[in-house]
Computed example of a mutant assay.
Amino acid sequence: YIYTGELDLTEQSGENILDLLVASDELLLEELFEHVQDYLIEKQTNWVRENFIFVLNTVFRLDNCKRLQDYCLESIREDLLPFFSSKSFPSINKQILLGVLKRDDLQIEEIIIWDYLIKWGIEQTPGLGNENCDRENWNYEDYEALKNTLNQFIPLIRFAGISHADFFDKVRPYRNIITDNIYEEIEEFHKDALPITTMLPPRIGLIFKSNIINQKLAKIIINWINNKDAMYINNRNGPFYKLNIIYRGSRDGINNRSFRIRCNGRVESLVLIKVKNTNKIFGGYSSIGFSSLGCGYIVEYGYRFYNSSNNFIFSFEDGDDTQNMKISRVVKETQAIMVHKENAFSFGWGSLVMSGNGLYANNSSQSYENKLKTATVYTIEEIEVFTVNRKCEDLIL
């Protein structure tokens, strides 16, 4: 390579390529370094994923290897269990594990994080591990040693995201490794669900599972629900949300009847729609739900209309769109939701409507702002509806 500028890595193992990355960094061969880093990400994806801990322990020593570091961490975030359950997990560098646990968007139950952190801490603590793994035989010094090992990690655990049962079964036995102020707040929280002050709130995005949008777009929608700018960053003092899936078209059927059966009643709801033959995503938030809304309606032109000042509809150009997204808030609050026997749901009179497997957004009555208006009739490929629950003590978005 030094003489010709040419390099063929197709026959090389992932480990050899990683060694080459380290060598090119040490020799200050910047062009080669960038090429090898990209090659590992693009051509050695499976090997990198199968050897995350080995790769991470190697590349986190390289200051210039930010792309590969970020790639590994993002992949881990999306599927954390293989990372934790790897035989190499006990050898993970402390700073790497700290960086992972500081993230708000880990998609795994908090109690699983706790379990693996305890296992890692035991392996890292002299005098514990294989030679002294039975907690029944531990003395005060053993607990103090484990406490010292994990003192930077314990404050990063989102105890508010751990159920009462798991707290008593799996956290309380390690009471001696948790500082008094944190443990006392955990106990009070689980007794009375008191406000969180010392503990970190549950992680963002832990339970949101969608076939249509990712966490990034979900956070934008939550910001819109809170009347914040799309890219607002939660300061941890705002409301938190739990989104429960109640309807998925690919599972329940894409038709009016299935929608009405599963999405009835006056409940705060979010609908997401992926349409065929395009990457576009549509959706809407209704603070009052969609059907079987009971009394409190007005009748216009023979149709029932329900009032809400908070409803909005939106669209994204694709699953990664944060530049061309559109939101249209309700203008005629008394026409926020229309109930019609031919529709599954209708935001306003034609602002965003599902009828059968068709989606319409012609905004014929100007019930909502006019940013989504289109004459196109879309065919629904996938649709999901979630109930929106605020200030949940367990898991949040």
Rank of each mutant, 00 (worst) to 15 (best):
Y3H: 12
L9I: 05
N16W: 01
D19T: 12
D19E: 13
L29M: 06
D38A: 15
E42F: 09
K43D: 06
K43C: 05
T45D: 04
V48G: 04
C65F: 05
K66I: 15
S88V: 06
F89M: 03
K94M: 08
G99C: 06
R103C: 07
Q107A: 10
I112P: 00
G121T: 05
Q124H: 09
T125M: 05
E131C: 05
W138A: 02
N139P: 00
E141C: 03
L146S: 00
L146Q: 00
Q152L: 11
L156W: 00
F167A: 08
E185A: 04
D192P: 01
D192L: 09
L194K: 15
L194Q: 08
I196S: 05
L200P: 05
G205C: 10
K216F: 09
K219L: 10
I220N: 01
W224L: 13
K228I: 11
A230Q: 08
G238R: 14
Y241W: 09
I245R: 12
R248P: 02
R257Y: 06
R257E: 06
T278G: 01
N279I: 12
G284P: 05
L293W: 09
C295P: 11
N310S: 14
T322P: 04
R329L: 11
K332R: 11
E333K: 15
M338Q: 10
N343S: 13
N343G: 02
F345E: 07
G350C: 06
G350M: 01
M354D: 00
Q366F: 05
Y368V: 06
R390N: 11
L397S: 14
